[in-house]
């Protein structure tokens, strides 16, 4: 019996390692950057079963949260570049360099698929004394420091949006940090904070139910999911330089992964993204499907990094200058 197993093992090793035509020859490992139940987690767990079907192999997914996602990035980077370890993440690593969270970011990985992106919206308590962006700016000017803005820590979406807002208007507010969208929106409904910038999908239901109100969509045009909410450029056209901007979700493998594996993975996830169930899921959560890979994805990533890095740097949030890493100005 033991000899049989050993034989099987040897056979498997011999066939699996050198001959990549057989990719995937074993289960893959998917490292999810954020905790169970979060936005990234749900998207990855929703799309991967379709990709598994397309590849005929399992992807064992595990959450490795912590350090604004840096731990999962370091971990995946430390694995072999054989295509068996997938990094399932969000936009955060593109800010690691300027935030002083390490030197590894998506430049050291190959994009398998950029699945979707989201559009930020500024929401406020439903009984806040302002209804649109201009009124909010005026109110804050008249009542300095009394308006409480929610934030999710440096490099998080609210910090970048706040930096963007602050680049054109003077916002003298108190920023209260929370450790995620969920807790911050709960705090908004409980009255602990007044205003919070968040991705549309996360706030949509609460807005529709009248538990909070949308002040402005941080985009160049109004969003179909939120009819009647004005885009931020309506009152302040200057914001157009930074837009469109928003969080994104995607899957990466380490640089130098064999071509073969990359193509197989890219094809599988491209298929998975087209699955009607997944499209319906994205639509419902207010995400925009992207489905780009390779160079196109790289271009998107570079632009995103340049816009965001300079924004946070100029608002004084960053530890290092983007110049230090040759990140061009937008």
């Amino acid at each position: 019996m033991t000899r049989k197993i050993l034989g099987a093992a040897v056979a498997a090793v011999l066939t699996a390692t050198p001959v990549l035509a057989d990719f995937p020859a074993k289960d893959m490992q998917g490292i999810i950057m954020w905790g169970a139940g979060g936005g990234t987690d749900v998207i990855m767990r929703a799309v991967t079963p379709h990709a598994e079907k397309a590849m005929g192999a399992k992807v064992v997914m595990q959450n490795m949260s912590g350090g604004v996602g840096a731990i999962s990035v370091k971990y995946t980077y430390a694995q072999k570049a054989d295509g068996y370890t997938l990094l399932m993440g969000a936009e955060n690593p593109q800010l690691y360099k300027v935030m002083g969270l390490g030197d590894v970011d998506y430049a050291d990985f190959i994009p398998i698929s950029m699945l979707a992106r989201g559009v930020p919206v500024i929401v406020a308590q439903s009984d806040a004394p302002f209804d649109n962006f201009r009124e909010m700016v005026d109110y804050i000017e008249a009542n300095p420091k009394t308006v409480k803005f929610g934030s999710t820590g440096p490099g998080g979406l609210p910090s970048v949006v706040n930096a963007m807002l602050g680049s054109q208007v003077n916002l003298d507010v108190t920023t209260v940090p929370y450790n995620g969208d969920g807790p911050a929106m709960t705090a908004l409904q409980g009255g602990a904070i007044d205003v919070f910038p968040v991705v549309i999908g996360a706030a949509l239901d609460h807005i529709n139910a009248g538990r909070m109100k949308a002040i402005a969509v941080v985009d160049t045009e109004a969003n179909p999911a939120l009819p009647g909410v004005q885009p931020i450029v309506e009152d302040y056209a200057e914001y157009a330089t930074y837009l469109p901007w928003g969080p994104f979700f995607g899957i990466w493998v380490k640089k130098d992964t064999p071509e073969e594996a990359v193509t197989t993975l890219q094809a599988a996830y491209a298929d998975a993204l087209d699955a009607p169930e997944f499209q319906a899921f994205l639509d419902q959560r207010g995400f925009t499907p992207m489905n780009i890979a390779g160079d196109e994805a790289q271009e998107y990533l570079d632009r995103w990094q340049s816009v965001s890095s300079w924004l946070v740097y100029e608002s004084g949030l960053a530890k290092h200058s983007p110049e230090k890493f040759d990140i061009p100005r937008p």
Binding site: A8, A12, V13, A25, K26, D27, Y84
Partner: peptide, 13 residues
């Protein structure tokens, strides 16, 4: 121990 390969082998079997 190449576990995943062994498991994949049994899976195929």
């Amino acid at each position: 121990v190449p576990e995943r390969e062994i498991l994949a082998f049994f899976g195929n079997l």
